[in-house]
Design a protein around this nucleic acid. Sequence first.
DNA 1: TCATGGGGGAATTATATATTCCAATTTACA
DNA 2: TGTAAATTGGAATATATAATTCCCCCATGA
Lengths: 278, 278
Amino acid sequence: MSTNLITSLNARLEGMSASERAIAEVILDAPAEVVALSSQALAKRCNVSQSSIIKFCQKVGFPGFPALKIELSAETARSENAQQIHAGIFSDDSLGAVAKKLFASKIAALSETMKANPNAVLDAAVGQISAANRILILGVGGSALVAQDLSSKLAKFGKAVIAGGDSHIQLANLASFGAGDLLISISYSGTTREVQVAVEFALAHGVPVLHIGAYHQAPAPEVVLHCVADENIVRSSSIATRTAQMAITDLLFVLFVQGQGDVAARISDSHALVRQIR
Amino acid sequence: MSTNLITSLNARLEGMSASERAIAEVILDAPAEVVALSSQALAKRCNVSQSSIIKFCQKVGFPGFPALKIELSAETARSENAQQIHAGIFSDDSLGAVAKKLFASKIAALSETMKANPNAVLDAAVGQISAANRILILGVGGSALVAQDLSSKLAKFGKAVIAGGDSHIQLANLASFGAGDLLISISYSGTTREVQVAVEFALAHGVPVLHIGAYHQAPAPEVVLHCVADENIVRSSSIATRTAQMAITDLLFVLFVQGQGDVAARISDSHALVRQIR
DNA sequence: TCATGGGGGAATTATATATTCCAATTTACA
DNA sequence: TGTAAATTGGAATATATAATTCCCCCATGA
């Protein structure tokens, strides 16, 4: 089984004999270099015999050394992006390095967020949106932009969406909402006061709630979609957070659109409108 | 140079001789299988001699066949994610399939956009921002959100940023700008009337301009950063566009921050402030 | 028609990989 | 503690694979 060589080596490291461990450690330490070595060269580097290298390869499930190198090459390539995720950016990083790290951090936010939300929950969320009469989208701070983005997208599809304005106005709007409407609240931490007040109010009045982000308070919204963001590239710049939030709202939107009928028609209508204005 | 074997093979396919092409085509068709073959086996499959395989490898820049296999393995691993990019979403796609396609499309927008902007241009853009006294960020339609996002980020770092408001207000603001200031204009297509007017005005009055998106008009802004977005997942939903724009603005921001001194201090200050308000 | 040059393959050589076999060390048990 | 069994690791060997060489053939142009 070679679904993941690196992981499995790490796991088996304990039960290995001295030579085997020497080999495994070199592979784990410098997979990229090992890929370029011959079995003899690797043997020298590990201070073991060439035949030990071959035996090692076979023991971990490969027919031979070249096969292991190929798998190793594939794995290092796959994890290239993921490697620098937890690195953070240093003041002496080159421009290219910074770009790569940012890129990696965004991809991590995307993939983790995608993973964090089971299909069933997404399905429920889309159901809420489709069923809703009117939708109030609430997000403060950085989340306000995400809220606006989602609202403009849904509006294109004829949904009655309210977003923007300050929290007082929003609460006033919410007061008229009922069981056939929907509150979408967006807050990464789930601790934003305004959002909590709105969610509690909605739940108390039988308004369905879809929350995007963490939410620890009781009572809990019917549906909660999680955003995963490891904010360590530029501390607290909330780049990863925004990326994760947009991933979720875009996904929601795409799923919603897919559920509707004649997608292309409506959107190009809206484009035609914009063009006319010019 | 083997930065991208597959791409370079595709590009060179035209100028190849019959045997070479046969080899290249098998590699392009089934890279995953080629990785498992010996040079002899591949030769048989291509109906060429074994030596031709070796010569081919050397011609495309590798020391030999094993090296090519290793690179091929890495590349197929890397592109595993990117495969479904051009698929589009169909109404009978499962929820998981939709998520994957969206994910792939976002990654494509990110990576293409990162690739599209040479370091030198990014460097110039960061220089403009650092040097600017006041900054006006202009974006209309969907780009308005991106403009706001960038403006709030830069504001955290003490930059005097103006964003938001309608185009009349913005033009009025721009009137007071001079050579020490900066206009950042954001428009995916570069054809937005308001943006063009502002850019022309700025250039005419000696105000430096940084444009994010395409720009075909003359006179051209000093610095143009490109956003690459293949909008074929949900047609015209501008999800990829937004993703690309945010990638660029985030990158700009991170690079700018890196250039400044005590990063963490300032941002946590701003966080502390927000916490106090609650 | 004949020289020239480039591409391709057969045969050869070189190299790398895999196997076998044996020695050394450890382990198990009397 | 001694001895047999078992396991590990390396030297030597065998095999497979890769790389080079050399030569033929065909296309091109004089």
